[in-house]
């Protein structure tokens, strides 16, 4: 596909990191942590393709994180993600850094594709592929006239005699 010009750096791959930040961060500190994560990727020679600002979400189940020997339970978190291209041997170093980050509850590194993968906004509505309306056959609604045998006989006789 369009990989030919990207293979200058032979081992580079597309990755995505999804992460949850601790909800104890105040709103104004989130952009700082977010740009810190982006700088981390760029610092290892990564090229950011797309990303999303972390935003507060309720998480589906409570998660634990031990910080300085204290168990912290969280039911909300800031969820954000970064998609980037980086050489394959650098990704493990990013993982090591994220493992030590006190602001990250969890993160997930995935291999992905360059194209935008979020499809929710461009839905084809189911009804758009609706069945073709059934065409009514013409003449179907005409009521069939009752046949009068005597009338027909007379007509035939008239035609024969003519």
């Amino acid at each position: 596909m369009d990989n030919t010009n990207e293979n200058i750096e032979t081992n580079s791959r597309i990755y995505e990191v999804g992460y949850l930040l601790v909800p104890t961060l105040s709103e104004e500190n989130v952009p700082g942590v977010y740009s810190g994560l982006k700088d981390l990727v760029v610092g290892f020679g990564g090229e950011i393709i797309s990303d999303e600002m972390p935003k507060m979400i309720p998480i589906a189940y409570s998660m634990l994180k031990v910080v300085q020997n204290v168990r912290n339970k969280f039911n909300t978190a800031y969820f954000g993600w970064i998609k980037f291209e980086i050489s394959a041997d650098k990704i493990s170093e990013i993982k090591k850094k994220l493992d030590l980050d006190p602001n990250v509850i969890r993160f997930l590194i995935l291999k992905t594709v360059r194209e935008n993968t979020i499809a929710a906004k461009r839905f084809v509505h189911k009804d758009s592929r609706r069945k073709a309306p059934t065409v009514k056959k013409e003449g179907e609604n005409e009521t069939v006239l009752p046949i009068d045998k005597e009338e027909i006989d007379k007509e035939i006789d008239a035609m024969v005699s003519a």
Binding site: V113, T117, I118, A119, A120, F123, R129
Partner: peptide, 15 residues
């Protein structure tokens, strides 16, 4: 395939 989705994203929780 009906909605032309080639890569199923884990972030698309509505789907």
């Amino acid at each position: 395939s009906a909605n032309n989705i080639k890569y199923i994203d884990y972030k698309d929780i509505e789907i």
